[in-house]
Simulated assay, not measured.
Amino acid sequence: MIKPVLNTKPISASAARLSISTGVIFVIILGSLHLLEPEFDPTWRFISEYALGNFGWLMHLAFGLLAVSLISAGIVIHSQARNIAGYIGLVILGISAIGTMIAAIFVTDPLSVSQDDATFSGKMHSIGATLDYTPVAALLISFALARNEAWRTIRVRLFVTAGITFIIMVLFILQIPHDGQFGPGVLAGLYGRILIVSYLGWVCIVGTHALKLRRQNSMG
């Protein structure tokens, strides 16, 4: 059995706080959009479509905040997950953040628009969305952090939160209709919302423990 290592490299407290705060604000904005734009059925309409409503700027802001949250989490983790799984996870997390930022910049097309009639903005948004594999990154990074003695005390919470996001991602993919026909009864929108909100659990676990380690190092 490989002995866990203790990584005492500095942790960015600012990045940890930013990751948590932007993640929380993202969820708050997303929740508010359900009230501000009730015309979008949350069971089968994607959250991206909120950008098509009267408060579309809030959806752009929310995606931007989520991207910042993921990038900040990566900054916190990069000095702590020093093995192959961690490096791969950080690359995937970075790609996911870039994809989310692309989704923030470009407006999606309505679900009623076919792929043949998709606009440039809609195509770019779709590309950005398909780059988001945060659950895979979270799982790989959790395995990497579990080998760091300083993170072993929360390894169960890391694996539980990362595992939940991964399972929900699989369930979300299974909800996508093969014929591309979305409508009432297709729960892709609901699973998509649960999936993206679940990111916050893992981000908060990472951020809060990083702040704890930072305080311990400062006291030491």
Score class of each variant (00 low, 15 high):
residue 52 L to S: 08
residue 37 E to V: 06
residue 85 A to H: 08
residue 82 R to S: 13
residue 102 I to E: 01
residue 52 L to R: 08
residue 82 R to L: 15
residue 90 L to M: 07
residue 80 Q to Y: 06
residue 96 S to M: 05
residue 32 S to C: 12
residue 61 L to S: 09
residue 70 L to E: 03
residue 114 S to N: 07
residue 49 E to V: 11
residue 94 G to H: 11
residue 28 I to K: 05
residue 46 F to P: 00
residue 92 I to M: 10
residue 37 E to G: 02
residue 104 A to Y: 02
residue 35 L to N: 01
residue 53 G to F: 11
residue 115 Q to M: 15
residue 97 A to Y: 00
residue 100 T to V: 13
residue 47 I to Y: 13
residue 16 A to L: 08
residue 36 L to S: 06
residue 52 L to E: 08
residue 54 N to R: 12
residue 41 D to H: 11
residue 63 F to V: 09
residue 111 L to D: 01
residue 40 F to D: 06
residue 49 E to K: 05
residue 69 S to E: 04
residue 80 Q to L: 08
residue 81 A to R: 05
residue 39 E to M: 11
residue 62 A to M: 04
residue 111 L to E: 08
residue 58 L to T: 06
residue 30 L to H: 12
residue 111 L to G: 02
residue 55 F to Y: 15
residue 70 L to M: 15
residue 86 G to P: 03
residue 33 L to T: 00
residue 112 S to T: 14
residue 66 L to M: 14
residue 17 R to W: 15
residue 82 R to I: 15
residue 75 I to C: 04
residue 44 W to H: 11
residue 13 A to R: 10
residue 10 P to S: 14
residue 19 S to R: 06
residue 49 E to S: 08
residue 97 A to P: 00
residue 98 I to E: 00
residue 85 A to D: 07
residue 30 L to S: 14
residue 13 A to C: 00
residue 94 G to T: 09
residue 78 H to I: 13
residue 69 S to P: 02
residue 77 I to G: 04
residue 19 S to Y: 12
residue 59 M to C: 05
residue 14 S to G: 10
residue 78 H to A: 05
residue 94 G to V: 11
residue 98 I to P: 00
residue 116 D to R: 12
residue 57 W to Y: 14
residue 70 L to T: 05
residue 66 L to K: 10
residue 108 T to R: 02
residue 108 T to V: 12
residue 48 S to H: 07
residue 34 H to K: 00
residue 57 W to E: 07
residue 65 L to G: 06
residue 102 I to T: 09
residue 57 W to C: 01
residue 21 S to W: 13
